[in-house]
C-alpha cells in the first residue's frame, strides 16, 4: 500500500472517530441528567468537532481532489466512513454513554500520546493540542465510571449493562491492518496493538476504584475501519447530512 493512500485513510479514521462521537454527544445537549453534566458533554463534543475538522481538513489536502473537511463530513456515505464501531453506538442511558466515552477516551489518550511523536509534523501538532483535551475527557469519564459503579445498586447495574453493550467493540480499537502497518512502519503513528497493555492497565485501575467486575471480552465485532458499520451509522448520517445533501449548491 502506498503511503499516501494509507495516510489518507488513517486521517479519515482519526477524523471520523471524533466526528461521529461528537454527533452522538451533541444529541445530549439540553437533555442531560444535570446541568453540570450537560455542559461537560457539550464541551467534549466541541473538542471532538475541532479534532474532526483538523483531521478531515488534512485528509482532504492529502487526497488532493479538492474535498475539504465539510465535503468529507457531509458528502460521504456509510461505506466510506472509517470510524470504529464503538463511537457510532447509540447513547442509550447515561451509563451507556459513559461506558462508550470511557473506553474511547482511554484508548484515544494512549493513541495520541504516540501521535504527538509522529514523524508527520502536522499530525504531531494536532495531536499535541488534542491530547490536552483528551486527558480531560478520559479523566472525566473515569470519574463517572467510578461514581456510577460505586454509587447505588441501580447505577451499578446500569454501568455494567453499559459496558456489556460496548464490550464487543473494544478489540477493534487495537486491530492492525495494512493501513496501520504502513503508518507504523513510516513512523507516523504507533502500532495499535502496542496500546493494549496500557489500556488494560488503565481499565483495571478504574474498574477497581469503581468496584466493578472485569468482564471477559466476547467475540470481537469488526469492520468499521473498512466501512462495514453497524446499522446505527446510516441513521446518524441521514440526520447529520440532511441539509447539505438536500441543497447541494447552497452555502450556509
Amino acid at each position: 500500500m502506498d503511503i499516501k493512500t494509507a495516510l489518507f485513510d488513517y486521517l479519515l479514521r482519526l477524523g471520523d472517530d471524533s466526528l461521529i462521537l461528537a454527533q452522538r454527544l451533541s444529541a445530549w445537549c439540553g437533555h442531560g441528567p444535570m446541568l453540570e453534566v450537560d455542559l461537560s458533554m457539550s464541551n467534549i463534543g466541541l473538542d471532538l468537532i475541532g479534532q474532526a475538522a483538523l483531521f478531515l481538513g488534512y485528509a482532504g489536502e492529502v487526497e488532493g481532489k479538492g474535498r475539504d473537511a465539510d465535503k468529507l463530513a457531509f458528502h460521504r456515505d456509510a461505506l466510506r466512513f472509517r470510524n470504529c464501531l464503538l463511537v457510532e453506538q447509540p447513547n442509550g442511558d447515561f451509563a451507556q454513554t459513559i461506558a462508550r466515552q470511557y473506553v474511547f477516551s482511554t484508548w484515544q489518550r494512549l493513541l495520541f500520546q504516540g501521535l504527538v511523536k509522529s514523524g508527520d509534523p502536522r499530525i504531531a501538532e494536532i495531536a499535541a493540542k488534542a491530547l490536552k483535551e483528551i486527558d480531560y475527557h478520559a479523566d472525566w469519564s473515569a470519574e463517572w465510571v467510578v461514581r456510577l459503579g460505586d454509587g447505588t445498586a441501580e447505577s451499578r447495574d446500569r454501568m455494567i449493562a453499559g459496558f456489556a453493550w460496548m464490550w464487543r467493540f473494544v478489540d477493534e480499537l487495537f486491530q492492525v491492518d495494512d493501513v496501520d502497518a504502513a503508518i507504523a512502519k513510516a513512523g507516523i503513528g504507533p502500532s495499535r496493538a502496542s496500546l493494549r497493555a496500557g489500556f488494560d492497565a488503565a481499565l483495571k485501575k478504574t474498574f477497581d476504584a469503581a468496584t466493578l467486575p472485569l468482564m471477559p471480552y466476547p467475540a470481537a465485532v469488526l469492520g468499521g475501519r473498512q466501512g462495514h458499520h453497524s446499522e446505527h451509522l446510516g441513521h446518524l448520517l441521514a440526520e447529520m447530512q440532511f441539509l447539505p445533501r438536500a441543497y447541494p449548491g447552497a452555502t450556509w
Partner: peptide, 11 residues
C-alpha cells in the same frame, strides 16, 4: 437523570 444524581450523591 434521577438515578444519576442519586448515584453521585451516594458515592
Amino acid at each position: 437523570g434521577a438515578w444519576v444524581r442519586d448515584a453521585a450523591a451516594a458515592h
